[in-house]
Design a protein around this nucleic acid. Structure first.
Lengths: 193, 193
DNA sequence: TGTACATCAGTGAACGCGCGTTCACTGATGTAC
DNA sequence: TGTACATCAGTGAACGCGCGTTCACTGATGTAC
């Protein structure tokens, strides 16, 4: 059942796309190779023709979702970015949402290759946000960088904490809302201390 | 090989203590019942005499580590609390550190009983911190609560992101340090916006 | 352009392994007399 | 206080299951002539 080279490449791409969603939704240990391949319309035996190992796909899926997020955030203001990031919609959209709150906990226990992919994803987001931040005359680059890191940590932490609470619990909603308000407030009155 | 009632109770407690560390270090899926029991000096067969299921122990271990953290933070200033929380020591001490950055990602995919335990742990920390916060005349209770939630999210997010970076990478250290500085700065100049 | 054949993407059975859980058994504890 | 026996905490073999990975095979693709 050989398949054209173009078809094979498309199949491979479909595996990566499906994996990036399934992993975000259920974690690296929560999805097996059989299900990963089935989600791309294939059977599991062909997996090792495309990837060296499951860990290999984990890294590639993470890289894909980071680049996808970066593309999606193109031309979006910092304000707008966090307004969506810290929303109930984003919290509930695990499969399509940001990879960081979905998989950083898992990534921390994975091989260095995966952690390197995550670090690159974080760095990419930091650079993008820092450059999109409204200019503030009396701030040096270090301070802008520190504030950007802090904002990302707040946003990731809020989603992580909110998702760990029972579905529909008041605390889950309170967390994303409090963090959104506080973060946006800080954004409108930049570094005055 | 029956054992005295007191001994059995002590054994059970040792299982919970060992589990709370092992789960934090390697995640819920990363430690099996055999290893959990071995860490308490027992064999796996006796597990179901103490707990209904592995999930049961997961909830109990989380409750234990939250109450342990609460006891350890007794009488500690907010300032001092976050100074340690956002340190490389804490980031590297996964097995003994805060349960939130270690297991919230896993908890999000677990049954509601576990998520309820996490929500209770978060709520407990929020109450403790809010009451320990230095009084600020012109802030109402809602604002204090929101700022407390925001601080916890920042701290948890920073540890989560830092641990997802390769060990010894500059970014891993930069994240905890930037967040510590920003958070402490905000603490010393309370809500002026 | 048409034919003959080598290539190789995808299939599905099979591998060893560790998982959570069950259960018949052991033997010290705790109780009844 | 001492003896006889029921209780039950802990043991370790066994269960079915799903995991990541391998491999002999199939048959359409792509190539050589």
């Amino acid at each position: 059942m050989r398949v054209s080279k173009a078809q094979a490449e498309a199949n491979r791409a479909r595996i990566v796309v499906a994996a990036s969603s399934l992993f975000r939704e259920r974690g690296y240990d929560g999805v097996g190779v059989v299900e990963l391949m089935a989600a791309a319309g294939l059977t599991h035996g062909g997996f090792y023709g495309h990837f060296q190992s499951k860990v290999d796909l984990m890294a590639e899926a993470a890289a894909f979702s980071f680049s996808q997020s970066a593309a999606g955030a193109e031309g979006v203001g910092v304000d707008e970015f966090f307004r969506y990031y810290l929303s109930r919609e984003h919290r509930d959209a695990r499969a399509e949402g940001c990879t960081m709150p979905a998989l950083c906990g898992d990534a921390a226990r994975q091989p260095e290759a995966i952690k390197a992919t995550f670090a690159a994803g974080v760095e990419g987001l930091l650079v993008k946000l820092a450059s999109a931040l409204p200019e503030s005359g009396n701030e040096d680059g270090n301070r802008v960088r520190a504030r950007t890191i802090d904002m990302v940590a707040r946003a990731v932490g809020a989603i992580v904490l909110s998702r760990a609470c029972p579905d529909e619990s008041p605390l889950a909603d309170e967390i994303v809302e409090a963090c959104r308000l506080e973060l946006l407030r800080g954004l409108s009155t930049p570094a005055n201390n």
